[in-house]
Amino acid sequence: MGANRVTTEGESSGFAIHPMDQFVIKPLFGGTEVYWYTVTNVTLWMAIAVLCIAGLLVLGTRRRAIIPSRTQSVAEMIYGFIYNMVEEVTGHDGVKYFPYVMTLFLFILFANLLGLVPTSFTTTSHVAVTVTLALMVFLGVTILGFIRNGIGFLSMFWVSSAPLAVRPILAVIEVISYFVRPVSHSIRLAGNLMAGHAVIKVIAGFASLAVVSPVVVGAVAAIYGLELLVAVVQAYVFTILTCVYLRDAVGGAHH
């Protein structure tokens, strides 16, 4: 499945602008083949995200002021927000994984928000990116769970509060739901962003009909606002789910 070449050209018969061509990965400096090291628009927008994060968290806090400037207080707010989330959800032992959670949150937040810049490229709308992020969390949590709790980590699947007869069934369900986690974790993020951007593009495509174009402008503005909300909420949700999964590994078998 899905072996489409991005370079394939076809007859344009439907939309004047195709809702999916905003997700195409193109090499920045010529050429058509995308090798693993090729500098593409993915590279560009991830680099911009890194620059934004550096600007906010490194340049913004360079004065180390007791009374913070506006940028510094935003950086401190994000820091406090994620720190409290990690501490509340995973408990005291989870705080040492805070930098990792912060990295995920900042990357997803800035990738989502930068994706809303017109004509930009949304890196987090790609399943490859979110699957990598989710698998990192999944493998990290699983390995960490076995390191911290040994074989006792498996007792997470054996619900000791349930009657003995239904425990095997519950164990099967728990195992399945455990392995579905990275799937839903990644598809949620990519799907939300892909859907939002595609919807904006589809609606914008209707603007070629002069009659409805004023409505289209309003609708695109409204959905753009919704997408801003979605961008922040999805970053938050990805992060908090990371914390929830981390709790299983850090907090032991009880969940």
Binding site: E88, S184, V237, I240
Partner: peptide, 22 residues
């Protein structure tokens, strides 16, 4: 936090059907 986690779980299933459509 629980509200958002719950919404995320419920929403994920909808996103799956959207994914299947895509």
């Amino acid at each position: 936090a629980n509200l958002f986690v719950g919404i995320a779980f419920a929403e994920a299933l909808g996103i799956f059907s959207f994914l299947i459509a895509l």
